[in-house]
Design a protein around this nucleic acid. Structure first.
Lengths: 207, 207
DNA sequence: CCCCCGCCCTGACAAATGTCATGGCCGGAA
DNA sequence: TTCCGGCCATGACATTTGTCAGGGCGGGGG
């Protein structure tokens, strides 16, 4: 039998991270060689420990999992990436794949399948949650323009138009116009709903 | 040495649930006797397996963890409850304790401490995340009246005032008034912000 | 070269939202 | 009993938000 597969774990919730480590450690052919809780710690730690596969959560402080995927692929091209996330948002899958991920799994897949997914990714295969794959094709990429995305992102916290205008250095009229466009494109009936829809589709990544 | 502690796990994310099971199974004095993915499966499964400690997530379909806690305490008073949650929302802790929980842990506590928390709860001690305890005292109970809470809950999805009025069988003026009151009490500057604040404080439980 | 198309920016107008004063209802205190 | 205070309900009014038409800028195709 060959060397065990070296795995790096990245998840912001320490409890979940530790639990996943315990789960994977049950498999004789897998070793967890590193654990990190922030996206910006992924690359430094990967350089140090040279993992074969990195298991990255999408929701992380510092750098989200998608950005961390891109950074890791650039820094260590031989390291495979398996993205894991809580929410089955179609946009996440698309963005993850564009960033160079080798696999994508949502957190409500059965626990027994995770080790198998790691093995498949390590073997060079692509692993994609099948239910999500169909949905991704249906919803497609973001229809939002760059500025519209900026404005929606800023609107998440619930400020007034004046606040957004100040934060983005735009006139209030402009902000209203971008919001209006975003509302139209998302099919929403007001700002709050547009934010919710865009967020659910994963169109607001990048803080 | 006495019998191992029997544990029931409830979490809607199968991967996390399985991982927690793996983590706890590493401890020789703990046995995971049941796993469920919905709040409304907790009591039936507990009746069947007679656990000593139930580990409940707050965010679950069917019945949230707080409601499940109350139901479980009523059905099997000898079973201790340890509530686990992703978000350290002060209101959650308060509500969980009022519902009869014996402990409360957030998911970014270190993994090693979970087994210890289970043991303490089983021994009859209370386990509370210390940082959260202070915050709870500071933010206190919800200042929102029942109707205000209803209206904010309905407003989460982002509908218009007309929608809310129809859903709650109220006049539009009334809905606006309740929203205005909620905005005032939360210190928000518009509806969306009020929803966000109330949600963060755990004042909107109960779907 | 010129045209066209899309994105960005802006102000004026219409529509929705938030505020306020008012009145009905109920339960506890005087 | 009567009064008081809190919650709920409602309509009129001011403010904010969403829509629209229009102009500037830059890249790609004819």
């Amino acid at each position: 039998m060959s060397e065990p597969i070296r795995v790096l774990l990245a998840d912001d919730q320490a409890l979940v991270r530790g639990a996943l480590a315990a789960l994977l450690s049950l498999e004789p052919d897998l070793t967890v060689v590193a654990e990190v809780g922030r996206g910006d710690e992924v690359v430094p730690e990967a350089r140090r420990t040279a993992p074969d596969v990195a298991l990255l959560d999408v929701e992380m402080p510092g750098l989200d999992g998608i950005a961390a995927t891109a950074a890791l692929r650039a820094a260590l091209p031989t390291c495979r990436v398996l993205v894991v996330t809580t929410f089955g948002r179609p946009g996440y899958l698309r963005r993850a794949m564009e960033a160079g991920a080798n696999g994508f799994v949502v957190k409500d897949t059965p626990a027994r399948q995770l080790a198998e997914a790691v093995r498949r990714v390590h073997a060079g295969l692509r692993v994609v949650d099948p239910t999500l794959a169909a949905e991704t094709l249906a919803t497609g990429a973001s229809p939002l323009t760059e500025r519209e995305t900026d404005v929606l992102r800023a609107a998440r916290h619930g400020g007034t138009v004046a606040d957004l205008a100040a934060a983005l250095h735009l006139s209030e009229g402009t902000v209203r116009n971008h919001l209006s466009a975003a509302i139209g494109k998302t099919g929403a009936r007001n700002r709050a709903e547009a934010v919710r829809i865009a967020e659910q589709n994963g169109w607001l990544l990048g803080d």
